[in-house]
Design a protein around this nucleic acid. Structure first.
Lengths: 140, 140
DNA sequence: TGTGTAATTGTACTAATTGTATCATTGTCA
DNA sequence: TGACAATGATACAATTAGTACAATTACACA
């Protein structure tokens, strides 16, 4: 199934920068669940062509959205809507999602025959050392 | 006896390149003795088909693993887990694998805006309550 | 048993697609 | 006019895909 087409309405006379309009509208569509986690956005070039603007302008919008953790851009691959915690999940749902996440993690670690102590130790250490920026380059 | 099937879980939106995900997971399974010396890995084409990716992507992952002496690829024959990996390497692998796994977990949890305390607490509780049998088939 | 041919496997090189970085140009406004 | 923000042009880097090829193995058949 082809990607849902991203529908944006740019007003070139509105006084608002184009990239801001893109940011706002994507943000709005995410908030309104028109765009859902995992959805792929058009490539910078495709969207630029459709809107008849320079692809750098799209890239700029995407960069801002990426920094706001709303989308995830991956060089050579594409850009995707990230998982956003629903603003009003109940505490119970929140807890359950952490439970599920943790269970998958522990299950996997145990399958690889790490001991409980090793796991606990590793979690404690990494939590201590955690920096939000480290999320970007977790691949080495 | 047919080959044990290599079980890999690729997340196309994780931000990690596919080949890196393959490397990490094979590495982890070697470290955790899920894959043992002499085990044959799927052919580049077979694994590629299963994961619905290009076989060159698998080949790239295999090349990296080969350079790290974790596997041995042989043109025309197949790829195998290296015999007698030095204990030093194994230990380092084990550590790195758990590190990578844990980082992914924490990164995900933090993105869902759980606090360090919440995460730590959840891990400790689940570890305490862990029953291997209960988790047998929770990975899908 | 030997040998030729096809099948299977990994390799090498290249192309295509994607986002990134840097600087130039344009336009607005004090 | 000068400064600054927005946009555009160009070159680049990372990832994945396409194609041809080489090494090895399997197997039919003389």
């Amino acid at each position: 199934m082809p990607n849902k087409k991203l529908l944006l309405q740019i007003d070139f006379r509105s006084g608002l920068p184009i990239y801001t309009q893109i940011v706002n509208q994507v943000q709005a569509q995410v908030a309104g669940s028109v765009l859902k986690p995992g959805d792929q956005l058009p490539t910078v070039r495709a969207l630029a062509e459709e809107l008849r603007i320079n692809f750098n302008t799209v890239a700029r919008a995407y960069r801002i959205l990426d920094e706001a953790r709303i989308i995830s851009t991956q060089q050579g691959r594409g850009t995707y809507i990230t998982e956003i915690p629903p603003p009003k999940v109940t505490e119970r749902l929140r807890r359950e999602s952490l439970e599920a996440l943790t269970q998958r993690y522990i299950s996997e670690a145990m399958r690889l025959e790490f001991s409980k102590d090793e796991i606990n130790e590793m979690v404690r250490n990494q939590l201590k050392a955690w920096k939000a920026s480290a999320q970007a380059n977790q691949n080495e």
